[in-house]
Design a protein around this nucleic acid. Sequence first.
DNA 1: ATGAAAGCGCTAACAA
DNA 2: TTGTTAGCGCTTTCAT
Lengths: 349, 349
Amino acid sequence: MAVTIRDVARVAGVSTATVSRALNVPGKVDEVTRARVVAVADELGYRPNRAARGLITGRTGNLGLLVPDLANPFFPGLVKGVQSRALEADQQLFVVDTDEDAEAESELVRQLAKQADGLVLCSPRMRPAGLREAVSLAPTVLVNRALPRASSVTFDNRGGAAQLLNHLGGLGHRRIGFLGGPAGSWSAAQRLRGLREAAASHRVTLKELGPVAPTFEGGLGAARVVLQARVSAVVAFNDLVAVGLGQALADRGVDVPGELSVAGFDDIPMAGMLRPSLTTVAMPLHQAGREAVELMLAHLADPELGPQRREMPTTLRERGSTGPAPRPRRAARPDRTRPDRSRRSDDDE
Amino acid sequence: MAVTIRDVARVAGVSTATVSRALNVPGKVDEVTRARVVAVADELGYRPNRAARGLITGRTGNLGLLVPDLANPFFPGLVKGVQSRALEADQQLFVVDTDEDAEAESELVRQLAKQADGLVLCSPRMRPAGLREAVSLAPTVLVNRALPRASSVTFDNRGGAAQLLNHLGGLGHRRIGFLGGPAGSWSAAQRLRGLREAAASHRVTLKELGPVAPTFEGGLGAARVVLQARVSAVVAFNDLVAVGLGQALADRGVDVPGELSVAGFDDIPMAGMLRPSLTTVAMPLHQAGREAVELMLAHLADPELGPQRREMPTTLRERGSTGPAPRPRRAARPDRTRPDRSRRSDDDE
DNA sequence: ATGAAAGCGCTAACAA
DNA sequence: TTGTTAGCGCTTTCAT
């Protein structure tokens, strides 16, 4: 068996209660005794048994983190942020990937809640009722989603979208498409709103396209609808969609961004690995993750604390561009037969 | 407070011991009583307190998973596999991202081991001594790394490399470069070995290039050395490097794969999202993750069980290509829908 | 087949 | 400031 608090007590010549206090409530024990206890504990390599502690305190020392899909490059940054802060607070982290399954989410949350002191739910897909249950089960912080009377960390999607549109507007684009994400998506709504507001003050026409799945495939399948919309720039729901769209356009011989600009959200690492340049709205994922844990800890420390909200700032980024101008491909033959875009009716550039 | 075993016992009119048995050792209790107990437990919504159980059984019901970097697209598939099997076994999963820090790894493993019944260490960067300690702390399964007298799940890198070289050789390539990964890398060595053996029987000259960092940037910076090697095909250490190299070559106006073929390992999702086609050796990550947990559970069930080894088969895949040959650009015709090659590999469900 | 009781390792009253 | 004691929820002998 491992070394227990009794071993430490025996060797240090004190009671187990004193050991416990020395280690947990330093103020309530004589400095000399405390030092001795700590020394002994250290020497014996004592590590408290969290299960035993948890049995009496009701705390597990664990945090639960739920994400819809770890393979989505948006999430690892968040997970890392959450983890870094959790470890600092000496909390271990359960990570659950729900595979985008809104149904499964609820049950997983129930399981998690039982073993964790608090929950961080990232972009939860479940319906509000499910979220409410989660909140009732354990202190919960939502990330990338808001809910009345619940704590959350969100990103300034609206502001970011506005920045993006201002940028495009400044470049001379007058007809811009928004290739929307999934129907009920909260962030898609925010982004659209930001774009609309900015479009108004730029005399830009905003065309709503889609919605499409928030995936590479979603973007891949959207080339046609985008070309038909006769826009000079497209804002995709996120980078994954933007990348898919970019590929589909390239396959059709459309020069990106020469003929058509593509922008996205998230600033996923892949955005920097691609050639058609991509303007994207970056989210401070790591920080958001840390902030979420911070709120959790605050709730743990003070159960009476009301709902807290943090909105993280977003930043416009230019990714993957190799140079200033769109470079024609070398071996490319100049046969650009694209029925839709061949007649330029737009006031590009 | 939550509903405890005593509540169930009282309502069912039996002792707590019987409830415990009914729920855990169905054989040792009368079928009628068992049914009643289960019904009551169910109705009351009883959920065993794992801390209490753990206190007496010494089991936590948790598994620990350690990965070097979740943002590396290689790992999420593995994590998902591990998680899926862990949940089936009613084990919760601690996930720790070590940020490629070999030093931190050891301490994190120590912390993990205390709260988990077993450990799964993916591509651990730590030195053998550290691994030995881990193994001594808790039942441990290594993934993507082997260690004498330790259980592990590895991939058939050698066989995959051989397949790859056969493929390239069959295509007529006679000078092939290997852009190696980090110096001490176990998998890099395996891959090189497989390539060498196959090269011999194909009268192919294998040029060792690099090593480079196993990252996108690593590949990006290798264009020059690759071009100087005057090879007609390059096998990169992994897909990330391959993608970086592909971009760097494209920037220099080299036609991939027309003038130079690029291949990689891992079959990361991104491989399917890119245009210069990429031949890659796919690893059954999801399955490997599940297998790792399987081995863990076997060790848990029988502590006397000796070290187990599994080598997972690898498969050659063609990704991101739009056609068979270096493709002249095609004018956009009425929707020539590309076969959708970008879906995740079948083993990733 | 079932129950009584002990006790896992720890913390938190309550006493001293 | 420190020790004594009870008990968190559960499993597991040991009786019955």
